[in-house]
Structures are given as C-alpha cells and as structure tokens.
Simulated assay, not measured.
Amino acid sequence: MKINILGGGPEEFIPDLQIYNDENSIWVGVDHGVFRLIHQGIKPDMAFGDFDSVNEDEWKLIEEKTDQINRYLPEKDETDMELALNWSIKQGPEAIRVFGATGGRADHFLANIQMLGKKENLHPSIEIEIIDIQNQVQIVPPGEYTLKEKSDSKYISFLPLTPEVEGLTLSGFKYELQDRNISLGSTLCISNELIQPSGTFSFSSGILMMIRSHD
C-alpha cells in the first residue's frame, strides 16, 4: 500500500497526479488539496484540515465526494499537513508521497521538510518523499541505500539536516566520496550524478536530505 497526500501548495508545482493513481494507492487530501483531488477526478479516501481555504461550494463538493473528513479548528498545534502525515505513518504503508508541499509560503515549505526529519518520522521501512514538478525530496537516517538511475531526475544532491553527517560514502556517482564528514551548510554534495544504472550512499550518523532534480 502507498499513501499519496496532496496539500494546498501552488498548483504549478504539482506534477501529473494520474501517474501515481493506481489501485494500490490511498489518497489523502489536505485542506484545499481535497478539492484539487476531486477536480482531477481522483476520489479522496481521507481528508484533513480546517478548510479555511475553500469556499462554500467547494466544501459541499468535498463533503459529497470524500469518504472520511477530519475537520479541525484553525487554532491548533499542528498544521493540517502534519496531521495528515501522522495518520499516514500509523497506517504502516510501504511509501508515502507528498504533493503540494512546495512553493508558495516559505514557512510552510520549510516546516514540511523539517517535519520529515523528525525522529519519529524516520522509518527505515517507510519511504517518505516530497514530490513536485522538478524535485523529489527524501530525509533519511543513518544506513546504506541503493539508488537507481532516473532519466527524469538526473541531478542528485545531499544536504545535512543535522550539524554534522558523519561517514558519508558515495559509490557509482560522478563525484565519489569515501567516509567524509559533511557539516551543516556545506555545498560539497550539490548536483552529483549517477554514472552507472545504480549507485549507493551510506553514512554512520546524522540526518541527511537527498534531493533528486531535473533542469
């Protein structure tokens, strides 16, 4: 099972969702993202939000087309996206894909990135990524990972989310590394590329953000 979450970020940053719409997927709408799913012909299985960004007609359609709605007061401790992500992780899927979480307000975008890096959200058995029209973002804990070449996301960058990421090793890349420590703010690992059908990266401590992008 895979869970797809659509937030309310700018529509021009959202890829074609039909690519991800298969029988093994559950769709979760966040606030105005619920209406967007319906507008694209995708039935929301679950909805989260205070829905302060939808008008009366949109709300009526959401009530009519959505299986389960979790509506909250605007005054709450978590964002609508965090509530949706927390629920999704508890379902134990093999993957969670988040759309509509980039662009627009910088505070929301940065909060979404940092949210993926919370200790309780770093599940080795669940692949969680933020996807937009140009990027795929993952936050990973220490370990060894295999990446396959993707023609639509040639560039691969690694950025520390902790003061230090220790023992970073890259194999099968244009610019390889061996047991290097990378400090927060370093640009050493920006715009790398695979030179083989697959490659590996590993590190021993810290939290690492991986971004796969295309121009």
Score class of each variant (00 low, 15 high):
47 A>L: 05
35 F>S: 12
33 G>M: 04
51 F>I: 00
47 A>G: 13
24 N>A: 11
46 M>A: 00
21 N>T: 01
25 S>F: 03
25 S>I: 04
39 H>W: 06
41 G>S: 10
23 E>P: 00
67 D>M: 02
31 D>F: 01
60 K>F: 03
51 F>S: 00
29 G>Q: 03
51 F>T: 00
47 A>P: 12
50 D>M: 07
60 K>S: 13
41 G>E: 09
29 G>C: 05
20 Y>S: 04
43 K>L: 06
60 K>T: 08
47 A>Y: 06
40 Q>T: 07
36 R>A: 03
23 E>N: 14
60 K>Q: 15
44 P>F: 05
52 D>E: 12
37 L>D: 05
26 I>E: 11
23 E>F: 06
25 S>P: 09
65 K>C: 13
53 S>R: 06
19 I>G: 02
24 N>W: 01
55 N>L: 09
60 K>V: 06
20 Y>E: 05
56 E>D: 13
31 D>L: 01
46 M>K: 12
28 V>A: 04
57 D>R: 14
30 V>L: 07
30 V>S: 07
51 F>D: 00
25 S>H: 04
50 D>S: 07
46 M>Y: 02
21 N>Y: 09
62 I>K: 09
27 W>F: 15
39 H>F: 08
43 K>M: 09
46 M>T: 07
55 N>A: 07
46 M>W: 02
22 D>H: 12
28 V>T: 08
50 D>Y: 06
30 V>W: 01
36 R>T: 05
32 H>Q: 14
61 L>R: 15
45 D>P: 01
48 F>T: 03
42 I>L: 11
36 R>N: 12
67 D>A: 10
22 D>V: 02
45 D>T: 00
41 G>N: 09
23 E>V: 10
22 D>R: 09
67 D>F: 08
47 A>Q: 07
